[in-house]
Computed example of a mutant assay.
Amino acid sequence: MMEETKFGRRDEFGHYAPKELISYGPLFTLPPKPMAVIKWLPGYFLPWNLLLIVFGIGYWLFLAPSLEQMKTLEIGWVLYLVLLNYAIVVLWYGAWHSWLYVLRRQETRFKYNPRWPTARATVFVFGKQALDNIFWTITSGVPVFTAYQVAAFYLYANGYVPLITLSDNPIWFIVLLLLVPFIHEVHFYAVHRLLHTRLLYKYVHSLHHNNTNVLPWSGLAMHPVEHILYFSVIVLIAVFNSHPIHMLAMVMRAGLAPAIAHTGFDRTELGGERTVPSGVYAHYLHHKLFEVNYADGAVPLDKWFGSFHDGSPEADERLKLRMERRAEAYAKKDARA
């Protein structure tokens, strides 16, 4: 059993936070610091970003139909992809949820919010958060990202988008593969800011934000319109000079990373003194505070656009001031209307 205090602390209300304030790393700092970037990169890619890229490679090598087969839209291979994606999602999300919330193998150690999710709440389908989250993931999330995946495969198979191979263009092939997490971050930020506009938040994104005390299944608990916007990054990467491996790495990133971002735990215990990072504190703060940290990762978009919260009391004060100014601006706008 690992002591929480080695990695973080709890406040007077029992809420857990990592010791280190949220930061973006040295990739975009000026002047450039090449050695600092080299030291930082392994921690960015390991374990999850690299693992999801490997999942994408494995999907192509061992599970995907051939491009020749996908030149025509046929129910056989499309249905195969649907069932395959359902199996992957159920296994992945179910494993995280079972370990942390059903079996409760580490109780509330490293859990950001010390309380377990409410047993019943009327804002959720079926009145239960977990069932609501599973419902939206299964009925909308998997079908939408599979549809994008099918479209991308069809484009590759018929030569409608440029297709490269590792042997023909090894440098760009590897570089683009490593850029997958960064492309996803930028796209996610743009879509996320759009979803926080007044009408889209009220009628679409608020469904996802019903999850304030998040579960792994909360990651893809979205309105279908949000799924359509969020997963559009799958086709976006196909318009680059790319290979289906790049697209599938993006499928794995967009489809599976939300479970990690929404575990609600900063670390997961593996037994003894071993733990692995398993939460994104920046995104937990987004669910808690709503108007901060629209992105998470290495690209400092929130810092550039004034919505960054590093977990400090000073950031709380900046947020309070920003929200007061926004409320005043909305009040003036409504008064003129």
Score class of each variant (00 low, 15 high):
residue 1 M to W: 01
residue 2 M to V: 01
residue 7 F to V: 01
residue 18 P to K: 15
residue 21 L to C: 13
residue 22 I to C: 13
residue 27 L to A: 10
residue 27 L to N: 11
residue 29 T to P: 01
residue 31 P to I: 11
residue 38 I to W: 04
residue 39 K to W: 12
residue 51 L to K: 15
residue 53 I to Q: 13
residue 61 L to T: 12
residue 63 L to C: 01
residue 64 A to P: 03
residue 75 I to P: 02
residue 93 Y to P: 02
residue 100 L to M: 04
residue 107 E to F: 00
residue 120 R to A: 08
residue 131 L to D: 14
residue 134 I to N: 11
residue 137 T to Y: 09
residue 140 S to A: 15
residue 141 G to K: 01
residue 142 V to G: 01
residue 144 V to R: 13
residue 148 Y to W: 13
residue 156 Y to N: 04
residue 159 G to M: 04
residue 159 G to A: 03
residue 160 Y to G: 04
residue 162 P to I: 14
residue 162 P to H: 15
residue 163 L to M: 15
residue 163 L to S: 08
residue 172 W to A: 06
residue 178 L to T: 00
residue 190 A to F: 11
residue 190 A to I: 12
residue 191 V to A: 11
residue 200 L to G: 12
residue 201 Y to T: 10
residue 204 V to H: 14
residue 207 L to E: 12
residue 208 H to F: 09
residue 209 H to G: 03
residue 210 N to L: 12
residue 215 L to C: 00
residue 226 E to Q: 14
residue 234 I to V: 10
residue 237 I to P: 06
residue 240 F to N: 00
residue 242 S to N: 04
residue 245 I to N: 02
residue 251 V to S: 02
residue 256 L to Y: 08
residue 264 G to W: 01
residue 269 E to I: 05
residue 269 E to A: 01
residue 272 G to K: 05
residue 274 R to Y: 02
residue 281 Y to K: 09
residue 283 H to S: 08
residue 286 H to S: 08
residue 295 A to M: 13
residue 302 D to K: 02
residue 314 E to S: 05
residue 319 L to K: 00
residue 321 L to M: 14
residue 325 R to W: 14
